[in-house]
Nucleic acid binder design. Structure first.
Length: 488
RNA sequence: CGCGGGGUAGAGCAGUUGGCAGCUCGCCAGGCCCAUAACCUGGAGGUCGUCGGUUCGAAUCCGACCCCCGCAACCA
């Protein structure tokens, strides 16, 4: 009990300007797998996710729909919350950046950065397209003009905002990357962010004029400004842990359980998509340094999910809503595809055709059919078994793969065993055997393997894992119902 | 010379100490009949982006080039 380790993992917070995306489903499923795995090892786990609700886009979207920003966010938060049941997620913390304690934490965080001398006011130029009635960023412009209104000149507006002294943290960030070569995974992303920081950092704006955009956390001590959404959103990774609750210093192990979650769980593991590399591994780390808090333990950077080789986009009509997929194919089928058929660090492709092919091959014909064969043979011959509830060598292999975040290869270990079992059955032909002893000797190791696989799968496919355990975890094994009926 | 990733059988991928080119799906032909028309065996199919170099030997190391994809900061 006293040896219990603390493990904190958090996803990024999806922005609620659109429906849940399959890429985020992959991210949160990976986090869920790691959280379940750590729990199964006996560690105490804090698993955070939530929604990012502030900012201009949300404000506009709500206006468009004719509801208040808060109402809009409530609706969207509920929609993202549905993923918990739909994908069978085990997170214990769902933070909304409009939560009062988060808002207060963001303000305290601001305050600390300010005390460190890292926040200052500066006037900067905003490029404004009158055609769109929108501010435009450099990256949105084509030849210095708004691509939608190329004939209109952009208006330059001076706006005074607060800035964060990002530039001050160039060297500390480089030191961080150098001292911990695993800080960002994969290595290529660490190289990418190092190269980016190496080139020099510009301070970034962390506030907006309230008149133009009121939907944000008020800047402490300045009622004319609200925080820029990133600044408040990033703080969620510690506000969800109860920060700014202070630690007992010196740490009193006898009262360990009385200390705040922040003290027990931070620093933690952050998992994000590759579009979040800068925010998570540079901006947020610099902010933590400024507030004089420990930097994150590690940042895992996922690739994207493409469809048919192309980036998913609404205009191409190749966007998949994970909730719809679950309704049609079931939770574990979606979990399986997103964990088994995505590359841990590079882009991966998703199409319905591939998804269905995988369902048929691996789930119906593979695991499902094997479970039927073995359970039926045992039941027909009325064989009783005393199997061990342990994961054995297979569990060790899976652990090894998971320790390097090879979610896909971890599952491949199991499916290789299923395939081997099918081969053994065909070679041994237990249905031809007449001696009960001989039959038992043939089937017992296979049933044991399936029970072990079930125990392991409870982390990947909780429902399927539990079903396998209930099928093979008894002495008198009965013919099992189909785990994954074939698709038509 | 902005940064980074990738180009291996019809499709999707594995292959980081250089040593007969592999896996899954699909296709063809057998087998089996316990099982969810599932399972097993065998087969066809690749000049490993192009050119050059190092080496007894390179998909794997080095150089040049071509093509594809992200990112390029205040866009969450």
């Amino acid at each position: 009990m006293s040896l219990e380790k603390h493990y904190y993992i958090t996803t990024t917070l999806p922005y609620v300007n659109s429906e849940p995306h399959i890429g985020f489903a992959m991210e949160i499923l990976r986090a869920d797998l790691l959280a379940r795995w750590q729990r199964s090892l006996g560690n105490e786990v804090f698993f955070n996710t939530g929604v990012d609700e502030h900012g201009l886009k949300i404000f506009r979207k709500a206006e468009e729909l004719g509801v208040s920003a808060q109402e809009y966010c409530d609706q969207m938060a509920a929609k993202f919350g549905e993923m918990k049941d739909s994908l069978n997620l085990s997170y214990n913390s769902f933070i909304r950046t409009t939560d009062a304690h988060h808002v207060a934490a963001a303000q305290e965080f601001w305050h600390r950065c300010e005390q460190a001398g890292d926040i200052y006011k500066k006037t900067y130029n905003v490029k404004y397209c009158v055609g769109c009635e929108l501010e435009k960023t450099e990256s949105e412009l084509v030849d210095g003009h708004c691509p939608l209104h190329p004939k209109m000149e952009l208006e330059l507006i001076d706006e005074e905002n607060y800035f964060f002294r990002f530039s001050k943290y160039q060297q500390p960030l480089l030191d961080l990357y150098k001292s911990n070569t695993q800080f960002v995974l994969p290595e290529a992303r660490l190289k990418e962010i190092s190269a980016f920081v190496e080139r020099g950092l510009d301070d970034f704006s962390i506030s907006r004029l309230k008149d133009k955009m009121p939907w944000g956390v008020p800047v402490p001590g300045d009622d004319k400004q609200v925080m820029y959404v990133w600044f408040d959103a990033l703080v969620n990774y510690i506000s969800c842990l109860g920060w700014p609750a202070e630690c007992n210093e010196p740490f009193d192990s006898a009262q360990g359980d009385n200390s705040s979650n922040y003290c027990r769980f931070w620093p933690g593991l952050q998992i994000c998509g590759k579009d979040n590399l800068r925010q998570q591994s540079a901006m947020w780390q610099a902010m933590l340094m400024s507030a004089n808090l420990p930097t994150s333990r590690q940042v895992l950077v996922n690739g994207f999910i493409t469809s048919g080789g192309e980036k998913m986009s609404k205009s191409l009509g190749n966007v998949f809503n994970p909730l719809d997929l679950v309704k049609e194919y079931g939770t574990d089928a979606v979990r399986y595809y997103l964990l088994a058929y995505t590359n841990p660090f590079e882009d991966s492709d998703f199409t319905i055709e591939k998804f269905r092919a995988v369902f048929q091959a691996d789930l119906a014909n593979g695991l499902g059919n094997l479970a039927s064969r073995v359970s039926t043979l045992l039941a027909k011959n009325n064989i009783s078994l005393e199997l061990k509830r342990e994961t054995g060598a297979m569990g060790e292999k899976v652990a090894e793969k998971l320790s390097e975040y090879s979610y896909n290869e971890a599952l491949r270990v199991l499916w290789a065993a299923f395939s081997e079992a099918d081969e053994k059955l065909s070679a041994a032909r237990p249905w031809k055997m007449t001696e009960a002893k001989e039959i038992k000797e043939c089937l017992e190791p296979l049933a044991q393997m399936l029970l072990s696989a079930g125990l392991i799968l409870e982390n990947f496919l909780p429902e399927t894992g539990a079903r396998l355990v209930s099928i093979f975890g008894v002495t008198q094994i009965a013919k099992a119902e189909a785990l994954f009926p074939r698709l038509d």
